[in-house]
């Protein structure tokens, strides 16, 4: 073997070694990548924003104008195909499709017989997993139940202790279709939770300003993941959160600054666990995480598109947020 040959062999060996090294490196990199991907897939914590498309606040898209007079509550059917808006002074619930086309209405002036449908001052609205629509009416002390097309089914009969009376405001369901109601009975401002058969399972709170006490609680919402209950304690200018058992956890919106609430009315929680609160006198929607940390807000005071004058009801379906803009007589649609 010549020296040259030896040299060539050496070079080849070196090159092979280099190749192996590169290969090994690549395998290692792949392993790291796979590990990262697996970590991202299996780690439940939202490392990246889960609502596709947006990290920050949603963007205004369009509004539904439906000849409203004092619109209050809003809700969607479970599939998001129908939007229900309580048109309080007209004593009706108006229905729209996803594109904002009117789909008729239901309700009308109350008749004295409780078998008949009708409203005196309908307020808030919630839809259960079967698509049944529940509408509260404090002046009549009633919650009425309709099917998804607005056919009257019956009035909800609370099954509780004898002599039970209530003054229902906000309504909401959890994923097991338990009915959550905020109650403004004089001296007893509280939260009532009924099971699917109408039995009163749990109640908590009373009128006052301390933790776990309320002054005209309006909106209520349940976080699907944690089961936490969020209550818009409207006249105390705050939102309070509670665990499943009604134990007080935290107060939201009392600190001075951007996170502060003035007159929170309704709450809706996105699938990603963001707590959206309409602040009627702040004229915007304030958004917090489930621990009460302020994230961002959207909307300002005014009459232009994307501006609010006394926002009241709120509903979220998928990436869409519906906000009732009371004094501008419309429902705004925002999208993530």
């Amino acid at each position: 073997m010549s020296i040259v040959d030896k040299e060539i062999e050496k070079e080849a060996l070196k090159a092979r070694k280099k190749k192996i090294k590169i290969l090994l490196g690549l395998v290692g990199l792949l392993a790291v990548i796979i590990a990262v991907v697996l970590f991202l897939i299996f780690n439940k914590k939202p490392v990246i924003n889960i609502i596709p498309g947006r990290v920050g606040p949603p963007a205004y898209t369009e509004s539904i104008y439906g000849d409203f007079n004092w619109p209050l509550g809003v809700a969607t059917s479970p599939d998001g195909g129908k939007i229900y808006v309580v048109d309080s002074n007209n004593r009706k619930v108006k229905m729209f499709d996803r594109n904002g086309n009117a789909q008729g209405d239901f309700g009308g002036e109350a008749k004295s017989s409780s078998k008949q449908p009708g409203f005196s001052n309908p307020l808030y609205i919630a839809v259960n997993s079967k698509g049944q629509v529940y509408v509260s009416d404090r002046t009549m002390s009633m919650v009425s139940i309709f099917d998804g097309n607005g056919k009257f089914i019956e009035r909800f009969t609370p099954r509780a202790e004898p002599g039970f009376s209530w003054s229902p405001l906000g309504v909401a369901f959890d994923d097991k279709d338990n009915l959550y109601v905020t109650d403004a009975t004089k001296g007893k401002h509280r939260v009532l939770i009924f099971d699917r058969n109408g039995y009163l399972k749990l109640q908590f709170g009373r009128e006052g300003i301390g933790n776990g006490e309320f002054s005209f609680p309006n909106g209520i919402a349940v976080d699907k993941k944690t089961g936490r209950i969020f209550v818009a304690d409207s006249n105390n200018a705050r939102v309070q959160s509670f665990d499943k058992k009604g134990k007080y956890i935290a107060t939201i919106g009392q600190a001075k600054g951007k996170s502060q609430l003035s007159h929170p009315l309704s709450i809706a929680i996105s699938d990603s666990g963001r707590v959206h609160v309409t602040d009627a006198f702040g004229h915007n929607v304030q958004v917090y995480d489930t621990n009460g940390k302020f994230l961002y807000n959207f909307g300002t005071f005014g009459v232009k598109e994307g501006q609010f004058m006394f926002p009241t009801g709120i509903a979220i379906n998928g990436n869409r947020v519906y906000v009732v803009d009371r004094e501008n007589k419309r429902v705004q649609i925002w999208e993530y």
């Binding site: 309080s88 001052n121 307020l123 404090r138 002046t139 009376s165 403004a184 009975t185 309006n218 009315l265």
Partner: peptide, 18 residues
């Protein structure tokens, strides 16, 4: 409508569920 007070002055009523 009774969402923030018992006196509903537009409707002229004092809401009392009891």
């Amino acid at each position: 409508k009774g969402t923030g007070a018992d006196t509903a002055v537009m409707q002229g009523i004092y809401i009392d569920a009891q």
